[in-house]
Simulated scan of single mutants.
Amino acid sequence: MRKDPRDLRILDPAAGSGHFLLYCFDLLLAIYEEAWARQDGAPSYGPTGQTLHADYPTLEALRRAVPALILRHNLYAVDIDPRARQICALALWLRAQRAYQMHGLKRDERTMIDRVNAVCAEPMPGDAALLAEFAATLEPPVLGQLVRGLFERMRLAGEAGSLLRIEADLRGAIAEAKRQWRERPTYMQAGLFGDEPLTIEQVGLFDVRAISDEQFWDHTEGMVLAALQRYAERAEDGLGYRRRLFADDAASGFAFVDLCRQRYDVVLMNPPFGAASKGWKAAFEQAYPRTKNDLYAAFVERGLALLHPGGMLGAITSRTGFFLTSFQKWREEILLKAGRPTIVADLGYGVLDTAMVETAAYVLEKNDG
Results as ranks from 00 to 15, higher is better:
Phe299Thr: 04
Phe273Asp: 05
Gly191Lys: 02
Gly279Trp: 06
Gly191Asn: 04
Lys281Leu: 02
Ala255His: 09
Glu221Cys: 14
Asn293Phe: 09
Gly204Asp: 00
Leu205Asp: 11
Val266Ser: 01
Asp294Met: 06
Cys260Leu: 14
Val267Ser: 08
Asp207Lys: 01
Trp280Pro: 00
Asp213Glu: 12
Asn270Lys: 08
Phe193Gln: 12
Ser277Leu: 05
Leu324Ala: 12
Glu301Asp: 08
Cys260Asn: 10
Ala250Trp: 02
Thr199Cys: 09
Ala275Lys: 13
Trp217Cys: 03
Ala283Val: 11
Gly303Ile: 09
Leu259Arg: 15
His308Pro: 04
Trp280Thr: 00
Gly191Tyr: 02
Asp237Lys: 14
Pro309Tyr: 01
Ala282Gln: 11
Ala235Ile: 04
Leu268Lys: 05
Phe254Pro: 01
Thr325Lys: 13
Ala275Trp: 01
Tyr288Ile: 09
Arg244Val: 13
His219Asn: 12
Met223Gln: 15
Ser277Cys: 00
Thr317Ser: 14
Thr320Met: 09
Phe246Ile: 01
Gly314Gln: 09
Tyr264Arg: 07
Ser252Asn: 06
Val203Trp: 06
Ala276Val: 05
Leu225Gly: 02
Tyr241Gln: 04
Asp207Cys: 06
Phe256Cys: 03
Pro272Val: 08
Gln215Met: 01
Ala251His: 06
Phe206Trp: 15
Arg243Glu: 11
Gly279Leu: 04
Phe256Met: 03
Tyr264His: 03
Met269Ser: 14
Gly279Lys: 08
Gly222Arg: 11
Arg290Ile: 02
Ala275Met: 13
Gln229Ser: 10
Ile211Tyr: 08
Met269Ala: 15
Asp195Ser: 13
Arg263Gln: 12
Pro271Met: 05
Arg261Glu: 05
Gln215Thr: 10
Phe193Tyr: 06
Glu285Phe: 06
Gly321Gln: 10
Thr317His: 10
Met312Leu: 15
Val208Ile: 07
Thr199Gln: 11
Leu313Lys: 07
Ala226His: 09
Leu306Thr: 02
Cys260Thr: 12
Asn293Ser: 08
Leu313His: 09
Gly321Pro: 12
Met223Asp: 14
Ala190His: 11
Asp218Thr: 11
Ala275Phe: 10
Phe273Ile: 02
Pro197Gln: 10
Val300Met: 04
Glu221Tyr: 06
Lys292Phe: 05
Asp207Phe: 02
Arg230Cys: 08
Phe322Leu: 15
Pro271Phe: 08
Glu301Cys: 04
Phe206Ser: 03
Asp249Glu: 15
Arg242Phe: 07
Val266Glu: 04
Glu196His: 13
Thr199Ala: 09
Gly204Ser: 05
Phe193Lys: 05
Gly253Gln: 07
Pro309Thr: 00
Leu306Pro: 08
Asn270Arg: 06
Gly204Cys: 01
Trp280Ile: 05
Met223Pro: 06
Tyr241Asp: 01
Leu304Tyr: 07
Ser318Met: 06
Arg290Gln: 11
Arg319Ile: 14
Asp258Pro: 02
